[in-house]
Computed example of a mutant assay.
Amino acid sequence: MVRDPGVDAIEAVNPAGTGFLGGLGLPVVIGWMVGGLLAAGAAWIIGKTALGLRSDYLAIATLGISEIIIAIMKNEEWLTRGVKNVTGLPRPMPDAIDLQNDPGFVERAANLGFDPTAASTLYIKIGYGLMFAAVLIILLVLAQLALNSPWGRMMRAIRDNETSARAMGKDVTFRHLQVFILGSAICGIAGAMMTTLDGQLIPTSYQPLRYTFLIWVMVIVGGSGNNLGAVLGGFLIWFLWVQVEVLGPGFMTWVTGALPDDSGLKEHLLDSVQHMRLLTMGVILLLVLRFSPRGLLPER
C-alpha cells in the first residue's frame, strides 16, 4: 500500500508519447555491458545455491529458476509492468523516421540512387549487423584465447574428469561457479542487445522452446566444445528457423497437391503447417545425432 501511489505514477507514463521513464542518458552500448554484469550477479546468487547439485538435477534447478524469473516478470506489474511490456527503449541506431526526415540523409540517398525509405532501412540493418558482428568477434576472440590458455586446459580437464582434477588440487566447485558466471554474463549481453534491437521488453515472448531448446540445438548441431562450431550452429539453425516459416506453407501445398480438395488429411496437414518449424528442428537434431554426434565442427 505504501508504494501504490508511486506505482500508479509510473504506470501513467506513456513511453510512446513521452519517452521511456528512467535511464541515465548514457550510450546504449553501456547498457549492454550493464546487462552482462546484472546477469553475472544473478548467476553468482543462483550458482552458490544450485551448483552443488549433480548435472541432471542442476539442469532441472536452473530451468525451474528461469521459469520463476519469467513468472515474476509477467505477474509483478509494480516492478516490470508485467504483460503491459516496457516500450520506447532507446536503440543504438537512429529510427527510420528520423533518417527519412533528415535532409542530409535524404540527399545522400538520392545521390546514390536510393529511395529514402529503402535507404533508411538498409542503413539501420547494416549498422546493426556491423555492431553485432563486432561484439561476436570480440567474444569469439576472447573465448578462443581462454580455450588455448592454461585456464582453458584446466577447465577441459575438469569437464572430462572431475575426480582427477580435484586430486590435482583444483577447486572444482569454484571453477564451476566461475564458468557459470562467465556464460551468464555473455547471455546477459546478448539479451540486452536483443532488447535494444526490438526497442521493447515483452516478458510473454520468452518461451523455453525458443530460448532454451533452440539454443541447445544450435550448440549440438554446430559442435559442443568448439567455439566456431557454436557460431556455425547458431547461424545455420536460426536461418532454417526463419526460412521454414516462409517456405513451409508452399512446401506443404506441394506435398498435398495430389490429394483431393475435400480430403481430411490435406486439410489437417495445411492447418498444421505452423508446426513445421518444430518438425524441421527435430529432424535436423536426429540426423546430426545419428550421423555426426559430435556436431558439424567437432572439438579437436
Results as ranks from 00 to 15, higher is better:
292 S>F: 06
149 S>R: 05
97 I>S: 14
226 N>T: 02
16 A>R: 10
152 G>D: 06
195 T>H: 00
80 T>Y: 05
33 M>F: 10
97 I>P: 10
68 I>Q: 14
49 T>N: 09
284 I>S: 08
36 G>F: 00
233 G>K: 01
154 M>C: 11
150 P>K: 08
106 V>C: 01
83 V>I: 15
111 N>T: 15
69 I>C: 11
214 L>W: 02
71 A>W: 12
102 D>M: 11
148 N>Y: 09
36 G>N: 02
53 L>G: 10
69 I>W: 03
279 L>C: 12
237 I>N: 02
62 T>N: 04
256 T>E: 02
185 A>E: 00
76 E>S: 05
234 G>Q: 03
6 G>V: 06
22 G>S: 13
68 I>L: 15
217 V>H: 01
294 R>Q: 11
15 P>L: 12
30 I>F: 13
121 T>Y: 11
127 G>F: 09
35 G>K: 00
242 V>K: 10
126 I>E: 13
62 T>D: 04
107 E>L: 15
10 I>T: 10
298 P>E: 15
64 G>L: 11
147 L>I: 06
202 I>Y: 01
106 V>L: 09
124 I>M: 04
120 S>E: 12
177 L>V: 08
263 S>K: 09
168 M>A: 04
222 G>W: 00
135 V>M: 08
133 A>H: 12
263 S>Q: 08
42 A>W: 05
18 T>E: 14
95 D>Y: 11
250 G>E: 05
297 L>M: 15
25 G>K: 15
264 G>K: 10
266 K>L: 02
133 A>T: 07
172 V>G: 08
294 R>E: 01
296 L>E: 03
132 F>Q: 04
170 K>E: 13
12 A>Q: 07
84 K>I: 08
109 A>G: 03
246 V>Q: 11
257 G>V: 04
197 L>M: 04
141 V>G: 10
178 Q>D: 08
75 N>M: 10
30 I>N: 06
115 D>S: 11
65 I>G: 10
86 V>Q: 02
110 A>T: 06
10 I>H: 03
182 L>F: 08
64 G>T: 13
148 N>C: 05
74 K>L: 05
3 R>M: 09
62 T>R: 00
236 L>F: 13
172 V>Q: 04
160 D>K: 14
